[in-house]
Design a protein around this nucleic acid. Structure first.
Ligand code: MN
Ligand code: MN
Ligand code: MN
Ligand code: MN
Lengths: 226, 226
DNA sequence: TTATTATATTAGGTCATCCTTATAATATCA
DNA sequence: TGATATTATAAGGATGACCTAATATAATAA
């Protein structure tokens, strides 16, 4: 018999998702949690009640959910496991970075703390995952998030891609096909009128990115040297 | 949305367990499956019905259960994943071999085929797990099992430890504490009367092993050179 | 062959995690 | 402020995986 867990991979996914969405807005609307997880709002609501019973989240009706300190710790643990596995899958196993997200999302729920820390040692404690997102510490702290959303840059402004928000494999693939990955230097060449898409110069190519997409790309903005 | 699976980790454990027990006796009594999984016979019986509906096993009432070809393929897939992870956890991460069994038993249910094969490449396609058990092929075939049970050796007979049946972490620890691991040369020095325990010489120490334990240790018997 | 034992099934739960449909309550915008 | 849109809850189900207690049936040993 393995030890009885208080919750399974489903609850872990809720916590992780809430933690991720909290970077965009807090409290996190239950609806957005449901959307992100592809689950009905009724089911999401149910689960959030259970998580509240267990003191992992606090729900303000009609406002949204917050993680408690304990919930954040748990969520960061899941995120740590996912991002460490992402590192191993890309650097160790050579799986393309746009595919590792989902694979790691399975492994993250099946990884003992002993294995997690042994893996961290093995990888020599990387600071970020292949998508540039910081890896939480072993005691559940999330490092500060650097950078500004690419969508905020105006034409003529330059920067270096820092990280891509962990939303979905589709997003990463979309960006990868356009040469957008952590470390690349970019320049916004144009913004279409009426809140239209941005044109981005990467290397010597120019790609057009929708605002929704560009909102998930974080950049280190270059000092304006004119 | 991830793909909808027909069964979860529980059903995989049943298939793996049936495959393992089938080496000792076939058909496999439902009771022994239940015992090995630490589950009531009623529950095991229910699950075996479900597995039969899905054509993974065939149940002969009052006799036991067989794997179908498809069930064996599935079971060998699980075993392949477990043993590959065991290799990585010991050789890659440096986790002691007596601990990797349970960790790998979690990971085996969360590993995509793409990851499995990338891992096999990475490990350079090992033939056996750290316990000496052969790793099934990518298409679900189990290599032939060599060796005879240590418990069958008579006093004076020698051999080399080939593998330890994948039963439990306790068994492995018990053996490890007595210096019994794959590759070691041993000699049976004595068998206590009335089907008693065997005394085994390993290196220059002598350890006493119960018959139950010794039945799970497989050896390559040395030619009797007298 | 009968008594004992092993095995299976029936009945009636629990719990986590999902669903749809319908209704109630709140927020927000005009 | 009142209408509309969001959000929450209530009601009733489903499924997979587990449980105990009681009963039925087949296998086997005396
Ligand atoms: Mn996940
Ligand atoms: Mn990542
Ligand atoms: Mn397992
Ligand atoms: Mn093994």
């Amino acid at each position: 018999m393995v030890q009885k867990r208080f919750f399974g991979s489903s609850a872990e996914m809720y916590l992780k998702t809430i933690a991720e969405l909290a970077h965009e807005r807090e409290p996190v609307p239950v609806t957005s949690v449901a959307d992100r997880l592809g689950i009905s709002t009724v089911s999401a609501s149910e689960m959030i009640h259970r998580l509240e019973d267990r003191k992992f989240v606090k729900h303000r009706p009609y406002k949204g959910v917050y993680l408690t300190a304990e919930g954040r710790r748990k969520a960061n643990g899941v995120i740590r496991r996912q991002r460490l596995w992402e590192c191993f899958l890309t650097n160790g196993l050579g799986i393309p970075w746009e595919h590792v997200h989902d694979f790691a999302c399975q492994l993250e729920h099946a990884t003992d703390p002993v294995v997690t820390e042994a893996l961290a040692d093995y990888l020599e404690h990387p600071a970020t995952c292949p998508h540039g997102n910081p890896i939480p510490t072993a005691d559940g702290e999330m490092p500060a998030l650097e950078g500004v959303p690419l969508v905020n840059l105006m034409p003529g402004e330059k920067g270096v891609i820092l990280r891509i928000h962990p939303v979905s494999e589709e997003l990463v693939k979309h960006l990868d096909e356009r040469g957008i990955s952590p470390g690349r230097e970019i320049e916004v060449t144009e913004i279409a009128p009426f809140n239209g898409p941005q044109s981005i110069e990467v290397g010597d190519e120019i790609h057009v990115l929708g605002r929704e997409v560009a909102a998930h790309v974080m950049v280190q903005q270059a000092a304006d040297t004119r």
